[in-house]
């Protein structure tokens, strides 16, 4: 009886923590999606200009706010072995965050946000044990697979806006990411989702290439 009363408390504590993490993760997802939409609203002609500068700056600030609020809430729930214990609860949010950061990074620099850069941006977020909060390699990689879908949408907009060169360079970028994924060693955390995401990535790539081809023929 007494032992089971103690077990009940432990189980309840774990479940409540998991619930809080799911909620915080959802907040990360929602805010990250807003950043992604903002990047899509940038003018597609690639001409740059003041309005674009301002929009990029605002998106950067929004990401900073996500780190300081929702991601911090995630981190503060975790200590030691909790990270892996609850990772399924907060992974969806972290993947969406990676996607948002990476799409903004691509819009600004035309390059891929690296795992090291992504973790560096998070270096100020600490977990309940005072350790720096890090992305798992799997969350980073799965976030990047979704990035390629966003780049595909950017490519279609660019072609529609008459920017002929953009699609070709975006095809090269997504092609390099797709190629890169082929040499990533399979780990257990990726096994469930990766094959399907790679299929989607290939179809995004074919869409960009087809858009690029349409401009040429």
């Amino acid at each position: 009886g007494d032992a089971f009363r103690a077990y009940a408390k432990q189980l309840d504590a774990v479940n409540e923590r998991r619930e809080r993490l799911v909620k915080a993760s959802r907040d990360v997802t929602i805010a990250s999606k807003k950043v992604i939409f903002a990047v899509h609203r940038l003018p597609a002609d690639g001409a740059g200009g003041g309005a674009e500068e301002a929009a990029l700056g605002q998106a950067e600030k929004d990401l900073q706010l996500i780190r300081k609020t929702s991601i911090k809430r995630v981190a503060q729930e975790l200590q030691d072995e909790d990270y892996w214990r609850f990772s399924r609860a907060f992974s969806p949010g972290m993947q969406e965050y990676v996607e948002a950061t990476a799409v903004l990074h691509y819009a600004k620099t035309g390059r891929l946000l690296t795992y090291a850069e992504a973790n560096a941006e998070l270096s100020e977020v600490q977990d309940a044990g005072g350790q720096a909060f890090r992305l798992s390699a799997a969350d980073y990689l799965l976030g990047i697979t979704d990035l390629t879908g966003e780049v595909m949408r950017l490519a279609i907009s660019s072609v529609a806006a008459g920017n002929k060169g953009a699609a070709a360079s975006m095809a090269a970028f997504v092609g390099a990411v797709y190629e890169g994924f082929h040499v990533v060693p399979m780990v257990a955390e990726l096994r469930r989702d990766l094959a399907k995401k790679l299929e989607v990535m290939r179809s995004s790539l074919v869409k960009i290439e087809t858009a690029s081809y349409m401009v040429h023929v």
Binding site: A172, G175, Y178, E179, G180, F181, H182, V183, P185, E209
Partner: peptide, 16 residues
Amino acid sequence: DAETRKMQAALMGIHA
């Protein structure tokens, strides 16, 4: 499998 995945990645280069 690891080897063929590397080869497939290299082969992707043809699509340039």
